[in-house]
Amino acid sequence: EKSKSSFFGKLSKAVAGKSKVDDEVLDNLEEVLVSSDVGVDTTLKIIDRIEERVSRDKYMGADELNTILREEIAGLLSETHVGEDTEFVIPSDKKPYVIMVVGVNGVGKTTTIGKLAYQFKKQGLKVVLGAGDTFRAAAIDQLEVWAKRVDVPIIKQKMGSDPASVAFDTLNSAVADNADVVLIDTAGRLHNKVNLMNELSKVKRVMQKVVSDAPHEVLLVLDGSTGQNAFEQAKQFTKATEVSSLAVTKLDGTAKGGVVIGISDQFQIPVKYIGVGEGIEDLQVFNKYEFVDSFFKV
């Protein structure tokens, strides 16, 4: 809190009543942003926006600054169709609503599925999980533990089987049971592995044999402690599966996850959720202002 107030304090002093921001303040701002993993390109973009805004709005009061800073940074984060409300809204005319969860190894896909299933179930929706990670040791068992915790059905095959076939089974079962939401887990894969990325496209195609417009959402999970490589992840996963939304995990630590600002801006994909722990309730709807504020906290 101390560094936050002192940063804004400095910024206020440096900008109030002036039409140009001090270099020292911009250097400070650069440090805060780059240290939050925002990345050099996006940081420069933000600094440009702030300089422009200050020169346009001239002679602003100190209290406006906080707002302007937040607005200019948050402005890069892609809007969703429902304004500030960023969580998944399950439409009643798409049944089952299919959400496929993708991402590199160990980011928190399976855990996020468990947490999402819990939230959907609480909303009174009928949920089915598909154990599409047939590769990693005990990945199926892990999802099964979550299915038990939430008390929802899981469709699985044995380790080593074809993930597309698991997804196919899951959708068939969901249709037969008249389920509302399907969450498909997938194995972690690094985005530079062409075969594994093609496998995802195949999973998608096979699902469409059951539900023609599936998946309705492709959720890319990013680890909040990941640096600039997340850009490449977003790029390659979008290419293979048309990612429609993002979740950023592990923000209960000291990492800030700032790289998603540039990603959301460049690929026009909204951030929907953040993971803030390993527990079943540790999934929050993304709030861009709180997110930006966290950069300026210790």
Binding site: D223, T226, G227, A230, A255
Partner: peptide, 8 residues
């Protein structure tokens, strides 16, 4: 994780 950013 080698992909870790500034928080490393």
């Amino acid at each position: 994780d080698s992909m870790t950013g500034q928080d490393a």
